[in-house]
């Protein structure tokens, strides 16, 4: 029996390791390719170990004149501002609907729910934001459409508030004469750190990784975020050569390391997420479990 158990554990581990390799090796390919020599890649292809270790691609990236650094800055700004605004609007909606004594609570909950179940789709949303609000090529195009308030996140926050904040505490704060905003800020928010941390993680991931708002609403290449730039470069090789080269004319000419540069920029697009990953994986798993069925 014990022997059999051991054999099973070995096979179990082998299967799990193979799956882990399936998940991780593509990242190794991406990283190694970005640290390779352009000529070597052109002759022998992308590989799991860097071919003739070479930092040329990163030198081009860091050469501030080509817009990649600027795109990076845009991504950072969008993520930061978007996450803060989104957290505020989400909490402000979730708290009142978590309160059983709110009149009309069911109406506000329904408005939220129905917005998740039924949506007009891309074309009406696009018409709204471009036609009525003229959001094209503005900073708000990255922040506002679709991403600013996710119904599922509001529900997650609402459920947390309803289950974890005893109404007795709220009552006694009211007795002491605290207003609702004061209660929200100094009682509810500090007591809801786990859910707020989880939402911060998911919302900031959504903003950092978003490329669709950029695809729909941004056409100026000096406003690209890193994800939009990546999207544009992949689908449009010509843009890659002309768009980047025109800003660096002379310094590179025809010798731009296109194949490795692509991978270097993709690495940069994934890097912040991978750096924070070990620190946030606990919240990530927690959030997936909570959000799974309800989201």
């Amino acid at each position: 029996m014990v022997k059999k158990d051991k054999a099973f554990l070995i096979i179990d581990n082998i299967v799990l390791i193979l799956v882990a390799l399936f998940c991780i090796l593509p990242f190794v390919l991406l990283f190694s390719s970005s640290f390779s020599n352009e000529q070597a890649i052109l002759h022998e292809g992308y590989s799991l170990l860097p071919r003739h270790f070479d930092l040329t691609a990163y030198k081009y990236v860091l050469n501030g004149s080509n817009g990649i650094i600027r795109a990076y800055g845009y991504s950072a700004a969008v993520t930061l501002i978007g996450t803060v605004l989104s957290l505020v609007i989400t909490t402000l909606y979730a708290y009142p609907v978590s309160r059983k004594d709110l009149r009309g609570r069911s109406v506000f909950s329904f408005l939220l729910f129905f917005s998740i179940l039924f949506n007009g789709g891309l074309i009406p949303t696009y018409m709204m934001w471009t036609g009525t609000f003229h959001i094209k090529n503005t900073f708000a195009a990255y922040i506002v459409p679709t991403l600013l308030m996710n119904g599922f996140y509001v529900i997650m926050a609402r459920n947390f508030f309803a289950q974890n904040i005893p109404s007795a505490i709220l009552e006694s704060a009211k007795m002491d004469g605290a207003g609702e905003f004061k209660i929200l800020w100094s009682i509810v928010v500090p007591m809801s750190k786990p859910i707020l941390a989880t939402l911060t993680l998911f919302i900031s991931l959504n903003y950092w990784n978003d490329w669709q708002n950029g695809l729909y609403y941004v056409t100026k290449d000096n406003m690209y975020t890193i994800q939009v730039l990546l999207n544009r470069m992949l689908l449009d090789t010509l843009y890659m050569q002309q768009g980047l080269a025109k800003n660096m004319a002379g310094s590179i000419g025809a010798s731009m390391p296109t194949s490795t540069l692509k991978m270097a920029i993709a690495v940069l697009g994934a890097l912040p997420v991978m750096i924070i990953f070990p620190f946030v994986s606990k919240y990530l798993t927690g959030g997936i479990v909570v959000g799974a069925v309800k989201g």
């Binding site: 593509p26 991931l205 194949s259 697009g269």
Partner: peptide, 29 residues
């Protein structure tokens, strides 16, 4: 668990580059 979640974290744009690194006709892995 952590290694399985890594791909979930990154954007589909980055995923496309990884797929390109694998499948590109001339330089693909």
């Amino acid at each position: 668990q952590m290694s399985y979640l890594l791909p979930y974290m990154i954007s589909i744009t980055v995923v496309s580059y990884i797929v390109y690194a694998l499948l590109s006709t001339d330089t693909g892995f």
